[in-house]
């Protein structure tokens, strides 16, 4: 596989993450463990399901809605892997020569244009070597393999005729309730 490019993307992504972090550090100077923004007095049943504007993650605050070939596109809040939009496919389209897995996992991302949470199915395209383009690893509300339905490290190619991972799509399912 072309993990050289995976590595490069990884490094590039890290560079992006680092600059975001240093901005955070500046804002948060002396505020470690204190809110960056004033918190509204909202009772939260559980953080993992909190879709209020006040619960916006760093990703959601910086996400954009125009370029789906970039890691910060809003639907990619918990994607891990190569973006199919960079591999000859689309946001819900697998590239030629691959197969859409019948299984996926589902995350919730906030669309910054309307502030609402949407259900996004992260569906892998399987059957040929890792695409190696546009590698992203976003982690909003991501969990571990003992909660497999919320984990983005599992190779979600169950049911495809080949388990070889190529890229990931972010399919809109509907507004989260």
């Amino acid at each position: 596989m072309t993990s050289q490019s995976r590595t490069e993307r990884f490094v590039r992504k890290l560079a992006r993450g680092t600059s975001r972090r240093s901005i955070l550090s500046r804002i948060g100077l002396g505020l470690v463990s204190a809110p960056v923004f004033p918190l509204l007095p909202v009772e939260r049943a559980h953080a993992a399901k909190d879709r209020s504007v006040q619960a916006k993650t760093s990703f959601a605050r910086h996400a954009q809605t125009t370029d789906d070939t970039k890691c910060d596109y809003w639907r990619y809040c918990a994607i891990d892997g190569s973006l199919c939009t960079c591999c000859g496919g689309g946001i819900h389209t697998c590239p030629p020569g691959t197969e859409a897995s019948p299984t996926s996992w589902v995350g919730t991302c906030i669309n910054p244009d309307d502030g609402k949470a949407y259900l996004i199915a992260y569906r892998d395209c399987c059957g040929t070597a890792d695409c190696g383009q546009c590698y992203c690893d976003n982690t909003d509300r991501g969990n571990q393999v003992y909660r497999p339905q919320e984990n983005n490290d599992i190779i979600w190619c169950f049911g495809a005729s080949s388990m070889e991972y190529h890229c990931s799509t972010a399919v809109m399912v509907g507004a989260a309730e």
Binding site: T65, Y118, G174, A175
Partner: peptide, 27 residues
């Protein structure tokens, strides 16, 4: 803005449907 994004035309679903999609539908 909604009309211009992919979110446009997203059907409204019930809480049960939303829970099904979020917790079960992946597999």
């Amino acid at each position: 803005a909604v009309a211009m994004t992919a979110a446009a035309g997203t059907p409204r679903i019930t809480t049960a449907q939303s829970d099904y999609v979020e917790h079960c539908a992946g597999c």
